[in-house]
């Protein structure tokens, strides 16, 4: 521990840089006991600042990755030499945001892109049709890719926090998008279409060699059953289904539900 302590400005700029580059990062702050207000910025393989006690820094640095993986922030007590009461440290995590990958730059995709941005998703819109896949139509999207699904999938890495919405209503776009994503670790794959369309679609996916398990991953017709009729309502229905899936919920009405209102189902169980 030599050299000058980094300034708050430096810590803030490193935090903002990590957020911009989608680097997992955590900020620990002493909130009770000890050196209240002291901060430690925890980056992969590196820390900045300090909480006023080197073993405390190390203990907090050790705890941060698990909280990041669970997308949780919390205040934890630590025993620190010279302090009779535990020192409480708030560990705030900034896991990289989820990505919503939309195939089909159609009307529904416009409110979907806008609402998903407001929910904190990185949004990518893909369509081979140059008239539809434009930045003007999708000013909120992080990326608009004019290309076929296989071209898009060659450019975009599908991660466990990637959510896929397939909206083009046209088998020549929808099916390559489904075939290209059902075998990936994507968290969610939803496809628009009527019940009849989806029966045909499931049969054709099987003929194309997709396994029953892969086909069963597809959420189709896409969205929650809220009677959505307009593009905006359909976007809400799709995002409702995605939020419910992220939290392990069914998406019913809270009036009929029991237990905790917010958060993941396992937290609800643990809290009882």
């Amino acid at each position: 521990m030599t050299g000058l302590a980094p300034s708050r400005v430096e810590m803030q700029s490193r935090l903002e840089q990590a957020l911009a580059t989608r680097t997992p990062v955590a900020v620990a702050t002493v909130v009770r006991g000890g050196q209240v207000g002291a901060k430690l910025l925890i980056l992969p393989g590196e820390t900045l600042g300090g909480l006023g006690d080197a073993p405390l820094d190390l203990a907090v640095q050790t705890d941060a990755p698990d909280l990041l993986a669970r997308e949780r922030s919390e205040t934890r007590p630590y025993h620190v030499a010279g302090h009779p009461e535990p020192v409480e440290v708030f560990i705030e995590t900034f896991p990289p945001p989820p990505t919503l990958l939309i195939f089909g730059a159609v009307h529904v995709a416009q409110p979907l892109s806008r609402f998903a941005k407001a929910l904190g998703f990185d949004v990518i819109v893909s369509d081979a049709r140059a008239k539809l896949a434009t930045v003007e139509r999708f000013p909120d999207a992080d990326r608009v890719i004019q290309g076929w699904p296989d071209e898009t999938l060659a450019e975009v890495e599908i991660l466990p926090n990637t959510y896929v919405a397939i909206l083009s209503h046209d088998p020549k776009f929808d099916e390559p998008a489904l075939i290209g994503t059902l075998g990936t670790p994507a968290a969610y794959i939803g496809a628009i279409g009527s019940r009849n369309t989806n029966e045909d679609r499931r049969r054709r996916l099987a003929e194309a060699g997709m396994s029953p398990e892969q086909i069963a991953r597809m959420r189709a017709p896409i969205g929650l059953d809220i009677g959505a009729a307009t593009p905006e309502e359909m976007a809400i229905s799709i995002l409702g289904e995605i939020i419910a899936l992220r939290r392990g919920r069914d998406g019913g009405s809270l009036t009929a539900a029991t237990g905790r209102i917010r958060g993941a189902r396992e937290e609800a169980v643990a809290a009882r």
Binding site: E74, F90, E92, R262
Partner: peptide, 15 residues
């Protein structure tokens, strides 16, 4: 101002 701890039911979560 940051919510750093929640006990019971509260309108906004930690963070």
């Amino acid at each position: 101002a940051t919510v750093v701890k929640v006990e019971g039911s509260a309108p906004r979560p930690v963070g």
